[in-house]
Amino acid sequence: MELTELLECVTALSCVVTQVSAGLTIGMLLFLVASGLTLIFGVLGLVNFAHGSFYMVGAYLALAGYGATGSFVAATVLGALGVALLGLLCERLLLSRIYGADVLMQLLVCYAIVLILDDVVKIVWGADFLSMGVPDSLRKPPFVVAGGIVPYFYAILFLVTAAIAALLAWGMGRTKFGRTVRAAAVNPAMVSALGVNTTALYAIVFAIGAMLAGAAGALSAPIRSVVPGAGVSILIESFIVTVIGGMGSIGGALAASLIIGLTRSFGSIGFPLFVEGMMFVIMALVLLLRPSGLAGRRSP
């Protein structure tokens, strides 16, 4: 391990600025994926093992959209909305049939979706690594803060993801729709008996969850390689985030995502070979100290 380098970094403000900003950006992208996962779990009781594939499809759609239009905004919108539509299809055709089924059945159906999407992506875009690169319009000199370097595109990503997170928080906390969704997460039968179309509500929540994954995939396409199977590692990270944050808690997912993002950015200096391992160590510690996660409800 390069712990001395980590020590040097945390004692130099410039290095801290660089790593913190990178960590927050990585963390916010992870949050978009994980918040969708936790939203779907919290409301539908479904563990969406296909969530990483939605992220991957979002990245491919963004790549295609950018190729066709040259606009990163259009590419991101295409990735997000395309995956929302894909999620809606999956929910209506497949997943709505297994609500309340045991988790093995959910795993089976979601895994089928994973395999299908991987193959579709291979057929359409091929099996090789593709990369999009940072769009020309967003290639600007980095910000320099206290001697630390914050890449321009990372700053943009952070702002966009933070705006999406704020929109999500507002929608869930301050609108009638969000309040109804939260009530349905606790007592769906009663919400339905009050005349709320819970079938449609579930479909919309699933589509929103998928859209968050698609948006994250699209936004990270310029800084990560786009490849079939790219969803697996983000899925595992999202699970870690949901467990640390507390299943079903969006606030918990935010805290956990930022913790994981910072672990990644500082870990790449201090323990580059143990970054993944460290995420599991953190998860294990949280589970030991707070078994239902940082913001989880005590088990019923």
């Binding site: 939260r182 339905s192 008996a193 819970t198």
Partner: peptide, 24 residues
């Protein structure tokens, strides 16, 4: 029919165990 369709047909329901949404 699912409960929401029955509710929309004109029924209102007050369950015996109340079932308020406690965190609202």
């Amino acid at each position: 029919l699912p409960p929401y369709r029955i509710a929309r047909a004109g029924l209102g329901f007050v369950p015996e165990d109340r079932q308020v949404f406690p965190e609202h």
